[in-house]
């Protein structure tokens, strides 16, 4: 039991120190690194409580995906464009401080509220073992009691994904390469006449190559026109 306690305090201490680091660090990338550290320690606390599944999900989703994307953005931002963390506007500093104070009070009240401390919920170790483990317990809860919330959240996320795609959609999507109507010859009078291209062969002048089947064996879904004479070209 004391080992558990020591490990818990280690995790908690690092977690709080990292959280402080997030706020104090001047470089936003450093802040993000501290946040990763913080999330990791929270995952550790989850493991201490026997919620391994939650811990792994915390690492996969928050550290593995969301923070990576956050870093992605931070790396692209020019350091000069970033707000200086310590020199916010006076209003920002006052309001920020006030909000922080309110949050601290809320948490303090929650902790000091005697009714919460020491009361065990329904998720006792026995109850979890009865359904087969913490993974199964979370699954059962999600897909029974909280099904509606779960579905609503997935809907919101889908909307978010579609919105992001619409916003980021490039103007031109995969321009198709078209095959030219024919080849031209620099040695032939018609060949250098660019106007005639694409409008079919002029009257009375048949393309020299057409009908001769002067094509190389198809390779990779393409054929090459094979010419034997510098005046040859294919028509439209």
């Amino acid at each position: 039991m004391p080992w558990d306690l020591i490990i818990f305090y280690m995790l908690a201490a690092v977690c709080i120190a990292a959280a402080l680091g997030v706020v104090v660090a001047t470089n936003p990338v450093h802040s993000a690194i501290f946040l990763v550290l913080c999330f990791f320690n929270v995952a550790g606390v989850f493991v201490m409580m026997g919620a391994e599944f939650l811990a792994v999900i915390q690492v996969i989703v928050y550290t593995g995906a969301i923070l990576v994307l956050l870093l992605f953005v931070l790396m692209l931002v020019n350091p000069d464009d970033l707000p200086e963390f310590h020199q916010g506007k006076p209003v920002q500093r006052v309001v920020g401080g006030l909000l922080g104070l309110i949050l601290l009070l809320e948490i303090a009240i929650a902790i000091l509220n005697r009714e919460v401390v020491g009361v065990t919920g329904t998720a006792t170790p026995e109850a979890i073992a009865a359904v087969g483990g913490n993974t199964q317990a979370i699954g059962r809860l999600l897909f029974s009691d909280y099904l509606l919330a779960f579905e609503v959240v997935s809907l919101v996320l889908t909307v978010g994904v579609i919105g992001a795609i619409v916003l980021a959609l490039p103007e031109r999507l995969g321009e198709k390469v078209v095959q030219r109507k024919g080849t031209i010859s620099l040695g032939h009078a018609r060949g250098v006449d660019m106007e005639a291209l694409g409008e079919g062969t002029p009257e009375g002048e048949a393309p020299i190559l057409s009908g001769r089947g002067g094509f190389a064996k198809a390779s990779g879904g393409r054929k090459l026109v094979m010419t034997n004479d510098p005046d040859e070209y294919t028509g439209a």
Partner: peptide
């Protein structure tokens, strides 16, 4: 014979 491409892309030049 002289081979000629019809698309003018990297693959045609390769061929």
């Amino acid at each position: 014979e002289v081979p000629l491409g019809t698309y003018g892309d990297v693959f045609d030049r390769y061929l």
